[in-house]
């Protein structure tokens, strides 16, 4: 009986969302990074050092950040959910590094404000869409049935798995990923090193909220950005340092 009711609810949910075709709102994401997994990717560490880190820190290797994505069919903004970082009890707070990723899907433009490597950079350039492979699996994320797609980051050389909602026909997504037939509700970077998972999808008019703040920082292009990241990763590996300590994974 219970399962029947569930099924009924599910059908309603599916039909409801499918029919309504809501295309504007806010998604809240939990962005969890597992830093012992990331450490395990560092080529200059011995297996012993990786095992030691994994065993020592296994109870506290999860680093959680709350993020949000405002989306309309043509635009999106991805940034922190709160304007400050804080401990779970809110007792201690810290400053968030600048991060705001704006996209215009109609004009195929983007403006990204990101603080990294000790500076705030503004990437104002055309929007590039990764080449997605569409796979046959489906799963539910935050009440939406999602299809699976995969791509590879051309600079960081890792696999990215996205789960996109078929019933939200918006090409937006969290971090720097977009261009799928539906809104991306979950991203899995490099086999679980970082997982960005939607916790809540709210449909409401947000077009008025999507605007760029004052741009303060060094203006660079896509090519500059790629070059900088590439160089930083190469240098860090040479210097036996974790590159992802100072750039976003």
């Amino acid at each position: 009986m219970k399962s029947r009711i569930k099924f009924l609810c599910l059908c309603l949910l599916i039909n409801g969302s499918a029919l309504a075709q809501q295309t504007e709102g806010v998604v809240s994401y939990d962005r969890k990074s597992y830093w012992t997994k990331i450490i395990a990717r560092l080529t200059f560490l011995s297996q012993e050092q990786k095992d030691r880190a994994a065993q020592t820190w296994k109870n506290e290797d999860e680093d959680k950040e709350k993020m949000k994505l405002l989306f309309t069919p043509t635009e999106s903004v991805y940034t922190y959910l709160n304007d400050q970082g804080q401990t779970e009890d809110g007792n201690y707070s810290w400053r968030n590094r600048d991060l705001l990723l704006y996209r215009n899907y109609d004009k195929e433009r983007k403006t990204e404000i990101e603080e990294m490597l000790g500076k705030t950079y503004i990437v104002d350039d055309s929007l590039r869409t990764p080449t997605w492979r569409i796979l046959d699996q489906i799963k539910e994320v935050a009440g939406h049935i999602c299809m699976k797609a995969e791509t590879e980051d051309p600079i960081k050389k890792y696999k990215v798995t996205a789960w996109f909602a078929q019933d939200i026909p918006v090409s937006a997504g969290p971090e720097r990923y977009s261009g799928l037939p539906g809104l991306i509700l979950e991203l899995d970077i490099n086999g679980g090193d970082v997982i960005i998972e939607a916790t809540k999808v709210e449909f409401k008019p947000v077009a008025a909220e999507i605007k760029l703040p004052k741009l303060k920082g060094k203006k660079i292009t896509n090519a500059d950005y790629d070059k900088m990241i590439q160089q930083h990763i190469a240098e860090s590996i040479t210097a036996h340092r974790n590159p992802y300590w100072s750039i976003r994974y």
Binding site: A18, T131, W132, R133, I134, Q166, D167, P169, L180, P181
Partner: peptide, 21 residues
Amino acid sequence: IPFSTIFLLNPRDSSMVSFGR
């Protein structure tokens, strides 16, 4: 069936070439 997603994929590796609705 309204609003289904239409994909055109590269048969070699399933990479997405185009999509429609």
